[in-house]
Design a protein around this nucleic acid. Sequence first.
RNA 1: GUGGAUGUAGCUCAGCUGGUUAGAGCACCAGGUUGUGGCCCUGGGGGUCGGGGGUUCAAGUCCCCUCAUUCACCCCA
Length: 426
Amino acid sequence: MNPELQRPKGTQDILPPESWRYDKMRRLALDIAQQYGFNLIETPIFEQTSVFLRVGEATDIVQHERYSFIDAGGVNLTLRPEGTAAVARAYIQNGLYNWPKPLKLVYWGPMFRRERPQAERYRQHTQFGAELYGSESPTADAEIILLACRVVDRVGLENPEVRINSIGCAVCRPRYRQALVEYYAGRREELCQDCQNRMEKNPLRLLDCKIDVAIRQTAPDLADYWCDDCRAHIESVMDQVGGAGRSIRRDPYLVRGLDYYTRTVFEVGHPSLGAATALFGGGRYDGLSGQFDGPSAPAVGFGMGIERMLSAVGNRLQPEPASVVYIAHLPGFENQAQLLGEQLRNVGLATECDLLNRSLKAQLREAGKTARFTVIAGGYEWEQNLVQVKDFTERSQESVAVPDLAGYLLNQLRNPEQNSDGGANL
RNA sequence: GUGGAUGUAGCUCAGCUGGUUAGAGCACCAGGUUGUGGCCCUGGGGGUCGGGGGUUCAAGUCCCCUCAUUCACCCCA
């Protein structure tokens, strides 16, 4: 195929049955969000570039990986690389700080980052995320983590293991940062090239270097620098999440890339993920909304990578069977079959007809792949207002009067002793 | 942005050191049953061997370039 006509690098066409898994995942996530009292918010998939520059100037996501363009009106726009900044913008612009507190929002949609694709990392990927505004309490952090864990658990990835850390607040973090830089400065010669850069740009990220692991082992620990409030905060979060039966442990080297976090940061990984570190990750960002010319509000949230979730879940999340009834027809009865199909769809039965004028044999073969019941319309039975109904799971067949067909099928489906194990998977 | 691997049918792949019309399994279609699926049997459609250039009497096979995919680093969901 002509390279110019191929899909852009790092994007994907999601084909059935995978497409149904995506859909199921979305319904499941939103369902659980509702159970926690979260409300759905939709924001544009592009924002003015300043929105993202405002919150993440030092991060790679907005520094090197931006999809930006100037539109015909000369406005500088950027495809959103993450959800938090966009929701924060919407929070201020719509005056949501005046809504009853706390404000609990979830979002679902595509995110864009121009990076080199690799395992479970795409230039367009889907994130499900939550943002909880207006509460400084550790119960808010805990609820965010518990919500995300429940989604992970519900799709079949049992026992998500939460790694958590506190990167401190405006009081204690600067003290720690200074101690850390002093420690690493004494060993500058031993550091890898990336870490030399990290010392200038974002010293905290020295801690998650995969090469210089030996050096960090004797580095100062954040926990020794936490102020009383920060210490009490993370301990309370861990108590709640652990008390709810989730496994959670402190990871002293966990520091997240986005630099708007305060106190809590957390991640959940999965063994099947390889180089991709996290199924979901997030933290607290009390100062963020204040950067949008509005009142500052405490907030905590997470983002969850749906492609990674589905990859880790594998086939444990099965799409619903496609079709329940197939209407086959004898030669010359294709129109009647389609009309019969509409009658069954009227009562909610998933129904397919032959659209290719194929032989009865071919129609039955097709039906056997997707349907539980096959109706055969036409011939001499049709003259007597009858159709043949085959039940593939029972290997049975009987004549049913056309006016009774819908009722008959509904009644068969309601019968509990019959289970549809008969090849009805998409 | 840096480094490695791989591109043969819709899918998974075979094709020995270059040598006739490039194969298999699965999938798809038809027939075996002019009105009854699955299993079985028979047949069929499908390929610019990613693209371009080069070496050679001869290239899927060797060389160069390019594109795509993939894995890792950086970073992240």
